[in-house]
């Protein structure tokens, strides 16, 4: 999967037509084989852009940043990124008319060891659900596999509650409360995060396992029905926490109980918890 040339062409064209102020894509780090996000403002720097299976990050995170707000933006999105974009549009965080979205028919990205990432293996939306033009001109890709339960979640579900708690306490012990997960998440755009607010004494105090766990649990519940499984958080985590365990668990519960709901698939869909409807079946609430 290498769309470097096509993306450079599209970015040059957009600058030439005066359609965008900034193009958000990927460039090489300059010191190893990995890539980092690139914000290109100068049309002469378009040649820095690359796209390969190492273009791992979800760039929609930059839509909530000051340096792209109220500017006309060109942006590269993969399938998962486009779902996050859908949610940002639905939740009024970004204006559609300011965006020119370049869609990638994604075949999956790889981790540091060159292995295809687990979320890409399980991915059921490899093609963007919202875009202005596709990088290879074809809006459709291969048939997506059906939704399946993540194997890690199956393992956790098999544990009893005591075992499960012990497992999570052990896994999340190494959290250093740096909040990189939150900053890297496209869906975390609150003006002031509840975890940092004065009234929420429950998250304060020393960086203990319980306070870290409590903060992570709150965070994951605020992403329940909104997480698109891009795994920006895991890529950003300096302690290499398996944060997807929290999100995938929620995703599965919601999939099973809310008419097979998956986050960000349709624009205007606010997710499982954010709509009042008299037709809500309420069949699993006592």
């Amino acid at each position: 999967m290498d769309y470097t040339n096509q993306i450079r062409e599209i970015a040059s064209k957009l600058f030439a037509e005066g359609k965008i102020d900034v193009f958000v894509g990927y460039r090489m780090t300059g010191f190893d084989e990995n890539q980092v996000p690139a914000l290109i403002r100068d049309p002469n720097e378009v040649s820095k852009l690359v796209f390969t299976d190492k273009s791992v990050f979800n760039l929609t995170n930059y839509l909530k940043q000051d340096h792209t707000r109220n500017k006309r933006i060109g942006m590269v999105v993969k399938g998962c990124d486009s779902r996050a974009l859908n949610l940002l549009l639905t939740e009024s965080q970004v204006k559609r008319e300011n965006l020119h979205i370049v869609g990638i028919p994604c075949k999956g990205v790889v981790d540091e060891n060159g292995n295809k990432m687990q979320n890409c293996i399980e991915c059921i939306f490899p093609n963007p659900v919202v875009f202005d033009e596709m990088v290879d001109g074809t809006p459709t890709g291969s048939e997506a596999p059906p939704y399946q339960v993540n194997t890690d979640i199956q393992n956790i579900a098999a544990m009893d509650l005591v075992e499960r708690r012990a497992y999570f306490e052990e896994v999340f012990e190494s959290c250093i409360r740096c909040n990189a997960c939150r900053h890297s998440c496209p869906m975390c755009y609150c003006a002031k995060c509840c975890i940092d607010q004065e009234t929420s004494t429950l998250y304060h105090g020393a960086n203990t396992t319980s306070s870290a766990f409590h903060a992570l649990m709150t965070w994951s519940l605020h992403l329940a029905g909104r997480c698109v499984d891009c795994r920006n958080c895991e890529k950003a985590c300096p302690s290499h926490l398996p944060l997807h365990l929290l999100h995938k668990w929620n995703e599965q519960v919601i999939y099973e109980n809310f008419q097979e709901h998956l986050a960000g698939v349709h624009e205007g869909d606010r997710g499982a918890f954010y709509k009042y409807s008299m037709k809500d079946p309420d069949d699993f609430i006592m």
């Binding site: 939740e91 755009y189 609150c190 002031k192 606010r270 954010y274 009042y276």
Partner: peptide, 15 residues
């Protein structure tokens, strides 16, 4: 208002 990020989920959830 200071803390509101304008996502408007409250608007759709209000019965």
């Amino acid at each position: 208002k200071e803390f509101c990020s304008g996502c408007q989920n409250c608007v759709t959830v209000c019965p």
